[in-house]
Nucleic acid binder design. Structure first.
Length: 156
DNA sequence: GCCAACGTTGGC
DNA sequence: GCCAACGTTGGC
């Protein structure tokens, strides 16, 4: 099975690429959208992941992570004290899943969303679709490589 | 199954 | 803080 490419969103106030660099790896818990969950479950060990910072000024792609553990039940769903608590999910019948991701690379500075929007090469990318809110999404290899090249390039 | 009301995401 | 674009809930 060929390696696949993804993008995940995080508010850096909650968890940033700097946090991932410090921690080395983390649980990607708290996904509570069925489409996003289904993509999580398709992730394979070794797949590469663009790490996107949302709700920043500007938002942008901050670096690269990789899948280090494939999907397994998200225990925060049945923790009443968790922000992600969902009583409909139980250990016997889990509804929500998470993966573990590892740190790969932090760009010198995030690739800002306005720059991504200028790229003809990124036409059709889910992230750039108007109104797109999906927090876990597949990315084509071509789009992934283009974003990484922008991330590594010296800007300004 | 329809759809109004409501809640959330996330750019601006 | 505003609001567009969703997704979910629940009455019918």
């Amino acid at each position: 099975m060929a390696k696949r490419y993804w993008l995940v969103k995080s508010e850096p106030d909650v968890y940033s690429i700097e946090d991932l660099e410090r921690d080395g790896r983390t649980h990607w818990e708290g996904v509570r959208n069925y489409q996003a969950r289904n993509f999580l479950r398709e992730m394979k060990r070794g797949d590469r992941v663009l790490f996107y910072h949302s709700s920043t000024t500007p938002p942008g792609v901050a670096g690269i992570a990789e899948v280090v553990r494939e999907a397994y039940p998200d225990p925060t769903a049945w923790d009443p004290k968790s922000d992600y608590h969902d009583p409909a999910s139980t250990p016997e019948n889990p509804r929500w899943f998470m993966v573990d991701v590892g740190f790969v690379e932090r760009f010198p500075e995030p690739v800002p969303l306005p720059l991504l929007k200028e790229q003809e090469a990124l036409e059709g990318m889910e992230l750039l679709r108007k109104g797109s809110r999906l927090s876990v999404q597949p990315v084509s290899k071509e789009h992934f490589d283009h974003v990484v090249a922008l991330g590594r390039r010296k800007r300004r």
